[in-house]
């Protein structure tokens, strides 16, 4: 009961044989060795596992790896090109938008999508956009600041 999948992750193509039940998050973390996306719940509510698949932010704990066959996956590890941080990463750093950092990779991937779709989001739009990402440390305010700051620079 295994299947071979071929997909592009952070610009690199790879092929693996997986059980259909393997979740994309487990595939990324344990097969592809990309441990940036995290697992923090099992009910698709926390968003710590958020990655982009074909340009859309999705929860990789709620997608089987086989569903990503042939698709383009972007994880937190794919953001900093040649050591230069993505503006959203830079903004999270400047604004102290993280404490323990566990939710951060998912938070940044969602934040990027918010700004991609709405280059000048209001505070309310940012908060609405972040509904699917839980953070227990920051109280979200500095995250909101970071999204605003990244949007202002874009």
């Amino acid at each position: 009961m295994t299947q071979t999948i071929t997909l592009t992750i952070n610009g690199k193509k790879r092929s693996d044989t997986v059980e259909p039940r393997m979740l994309l998050i487990h595939y990324l973390r344990e097969v592809a060795g990309l441990t940036g996306p995290h697992i923090a719940c099992e009910t698709s509510l926390c968003g710590a596992c958020t990655v982009h698949v074909d340009g859309k932010a999705i929860k990789s704990c709620s997608m089987f790896a086989v569903q990503a066959d042939g698709r383009n996956v972007l994880t937190i590890e794919g953001l900093a090109a040649d050591g230069k941080l993505d503006p959203m990463q830079e903004a999270f750093w400047n604004e102290h938008a993280l404490q323990c950092g566990f939710c951060t990779p998912g938070m940044i991937m969602t934040a990027k999508q918010i700004v991609e779709r709405n280059p000048k989001p209001t505070e309310e739009e940012i908060r609405h956009g972040l509904e699917g990402n839980l953070c227990r440390c920051t109280g979200y305010q500095h995250i909101v600041n970071a999204v605003k700051a990244a949007a202002a620079k874009a």
Partner: peptide, 19 residues
């Protein structure tokens, strides 16, 4: 001052137990 622990956390390269 922005935090010195952040570069590893914002790039997804920090190591938690499950990593």
């Amino acid at each position: 001052i922005r935090r010195r622990e952040d570069p590893r956390l914002i790039t997804g390269t920090a190591t938690y137990v499950d990593d």
